[in-house]
Amino acid sequence: MSAALNESALTQSETGDAGDEAAGPIRTAAYAGGLWRSWRGLVYQLVGIAAVLFGLIIWLANTGLSATELTTLAPAALWGYTVEHLQLTLVAAVIVLVVAIPLGVALTRKRLRFLSAPVLIVANIGQAAPAIGLVVLLAFWLGFGFWAAIVSLVLYAILPVLRNTMVGLQQVDQRLVEAGRGMGMSAAAVLFKVELPLAVPVMLSGIRTALVLLVGTAALATFINGGGLGILITTGVNLKLTSVLITGSVLVALLALFIDWFGRVVEHLARPKGL
């Protein structure tokens, strides 16, 4: 298995490298090694997730489940909860991106830079609020349901994206910005062609952190009838159905790991070449 994967990595890199005449065989081999190394962790992670999921299914199939448990854990029901959970996560994530990235860009522009420190301090204090408290508080204000859950999720996940957007932009070498301006690129052109592409790796890792936070926090949405896989955990506790409790917990964890894996794959593919 491992050898086969290694081989496929090699061929992939060779075709990728074909255009570069100067790359000798030694360099190509080293490159392939690096490529495999960098993908290896991702492969392991996916295999691990699949293995645990498989183990869960085997365990459920071999445990004598009561009628209630069978209804709660029907595949269609589980799939429905998972979809709800993903909806919560993704809708919140989109809103977070739309709000946090422009805000991060704005706060690193010269004119608004003085605001960046206070904004970060407020966001940091907000982050200290317990997620469960935030979810419940907002439900008092906005009522129960999907959108109340979304609002608290968004509030909770904005910080990592905002902070990493700002850090990513701030760590771009100022001389490159100046080189761009010196060549006659407008401020907007420098932002979109130089600063943002160079900030992408840091921004993406912030976005991945936010996604993982969102998956975890979305499990709390069940407390305010927001849907998602959390309902399996509360049902399991309330009705003392251990198998439901364990299934819910494991599925939430696996979903978080899967989203994390997905985020890492995106980071890998979207990282600008040459960095």
């Binding site: 409790l245 939430v252 964890a253 994390d260």
Partner: peptide, 20 residues
């Protein structure tokens, strides 16, 4: 890897697992 994976697991999920 252990700390990365561990930090990815939602706390609520781990509590659920430990209640069992």
């Amino acid at each position: 890897s252990v700390s990365a994976v561990g930090l990815t697991i939602p706390s609520f999920a781990l509590i659920g697992l430990l209640i069992a």
